[in-house]
Amino acid sequence: MMGEIQVLVEHRLGELRDITFEMLTKACELSEKTSSKVVSIILGKNVKEKAEKLSKYSDEVLVVDDDRLEYYNSDVYQMTLEKIVKERKPWLLMIAHTSYGIELAPSLAVSLNAPIVTDCIDLNVEDGKLMVIRQVYGGKLYAKIHVKKTDPAILTIRQGVVQPKELEKHGKINVLKPSIDLEAVKKKFIEYVAPAVGEVDITSADVIVAIGRGIKDKSNIPLAEELARLLGGVLACSRPIVDKGWLPQDRQVGSSGKTVKPKLYIALGISGAFQHILGMKNSQLIIAINKDPNAPIFNVSHYGVVEDLFKVVPTLIEKIKELKKQAT
């Protein structure tokens, strides 16, 4: 399995995104085992200066700097990468499992006739076989998958699962100029839409009471709101609550919402999908109430209560009120 491991660098609005270094860390680990070379590929406009930083994490950096790559367009990325992959013949191509990677990787796999496994949380080479681990059924089970064809194999990697390491490589920077034909491109970037600014900024709150599917009905929200108010905190939520239109999007915690680090995070009826956990796992104190003992939220909480939130929360509210009364 010697040869090249390629990592597609992810960047947006001039910033290299964390997942890039997570993937490069994993790639380096695998490269040592397989005597492979780690090659990072950055596509974009005015990205040459980024290559310096990437060279510390790679044995080689391939740069395609082109005005037509100014905004991310998976069609343009695909035609560019296809050429690079066909010429360089890596055995593995790693792409981020993000809004950009999801748009690109599957169709690239089809055009390269390569197998694809997405949203991998781990990968390894065992007895010369490429093995990947991914979560299924909302993280309740893991699947171990053997990717038998590696010319190349395409894997997309979940964000936040690899601890990125500082590396001290001095990869050579190579500028490529593959031809880009915009005639064949059937989609066009128009503009970014920034998130709407709400009345409450949950990222600056010391205490957050967050609700998930377990709140069951919109009419139950005032219960959680009262708990938040008593603790001087704010109400936040997981994705399903926003999808149902029960709370505005600026209250959503998670990868597609906000990242928060309050002193206290109380999760009510939140199962803990990884997208949610990415947004709250660094809170100083996490208390979760959920009636499902297997809910992944308990893997990141400091304290857990396996019970119906509608039994615990009203009692909790009474106790806090009592305490406040004693204090005055």
């Binding site: 197998p115 093995m131 979560q135 998958i145 038998k148 909480s301 304290y303 209560v305």
Partner: peptide, 21 residues
């Protein structure tokens, strides 16, 4: 014919951190 083979489906190792009250 698939180049992808399901090796095993398993319950993940327990990494529960929470102290259950």
């Amino acid at each position: 014919a698939s180049p992808i083979e399901m090796v095993e489906l398993y319950v993940p190792p327990v990494e529960r951190k929470a102290e259950i009250i």
